[in-house]
Design a protein around this nucleic acid. Structure first.
Lengths: 169, 169
DNA sequence: CCTATCATGTAATCCGTTACATGATTAT
DNA sequence: ATAATCATGTAACGGATTACATGATAGG
């Protein structure tokens, strides 16, 4: 019995999007173009976590015999069940800002100076999001597009917030 | 040489607000009424982290001789310097949403159902923030108030976002 | 007095981050 | 060929979370 973390569900969720399984490298690619924008996962985790999940019966593994001997992971019924339950369960996690910029602001950083950097950061993020918008609009499932909208709203809010501070200085 | 984490700076920052040092329990209390809303720290960390910082010379320790033998931590000049540099340095940290609700949304959760819970969560947060507003307005330093405003803006944005989704269902 | 909660700490576990490392492809 | 980059992993370390544990204080 292992504890499933958000990373676990991210992996399960990504694997569930494939038809014939995924290798850690596949997962890495998928993260990069999907959840990576708002929920990054270092690639080493994408090797470690599937093994954890496989050991606990949530994924099955097949290893290539020759060549790269890559590991291919697929959802087991147990894995699919866990994923479904997670998706449909009420969300527990306490969402905190945990924004280092806000922490600095709290402890006395000069608002105007800090704001300049933060605005740029959020603007860049915003651009990245909007660049993938067309792509997301084409997808059959609405989830990614809705998540993207959340991200855009989020970045816009922070651009607003820091812009207010920048002006005051 | 240790690596200073955000938790390290939180501790240094809190200690810096005191005149005659702080015990871990003091820190716990301070977190609860200050940064805890948007950057919580479990109390066990408030015992471990000051020791780490003291061992590395950022804090000094004095232990009570009798009774509870509490440890009192104060900033050393090294600690104050590190804190100042951090506060005034440009902010590196990549701020990601890392919102479990958005992750679920991405992976197919029913928007309307999910939204209901999320709205409540963010509303509660919002109320907590606004309750401390008067308190923050009285403080001499502007940081806490500005951080609070960020939090309020953040929660409002998410209430907006999830409310939109709730309606569509 | 007794018990509930506050106050204060320690221990164990583990995920996540950061390097390190090396076999395949591709480009020049 | 050789360098560069992609692909694919492993190792080590440490911070963070989660329990566990116990001495004070106050309330009844």
């Amino acid at each position: 019995m292992i504890e499933l973390t958000q990373t676990s569900y991210t992996v399960l969720g990504l694997v569930s999007l494939t038809t014939d399984g995924a290798t850690p490298y596949d997962l890495k690619q998928m993260v990069a173009i999907s959840v990576g924008n708002f929920w990054s996962v270092p690639h080493s985790q994408l090797y470690a976590e599937p093994d954890r999940l496989a050991a606990a019966g949530y994924l099955s593994v097949t290893r290539e015999k020759g060549g790269r001997r890559r590991k291919h992971y697929k959802l087991t019924s147990k894995g699919r069940k866990a994923l479904d339950e997670w998706v449909h369960s009420p969300t527990e996690g306490s969402i905190e800002l945990r924004d280092p910029g806000i922490l600095k602001l709290f402890f006395g950083a000069d608002p105007a100076t800090l704001a300049a950097g933060q605005i740029e950061h959020h603007r860049r993020r915003l651009n990245e999001y909007e660049a993938t918008r067309k792509f997301a609009d084409e997808l059959p499932s609405p989830g990614p597009r809705l998540a993207l909208e959340a991200g855009i709203g989020h970045e816009r809010e922070y651009v607003r917030f820091w812009s207010k501070l920048a002006k005051k200085g």
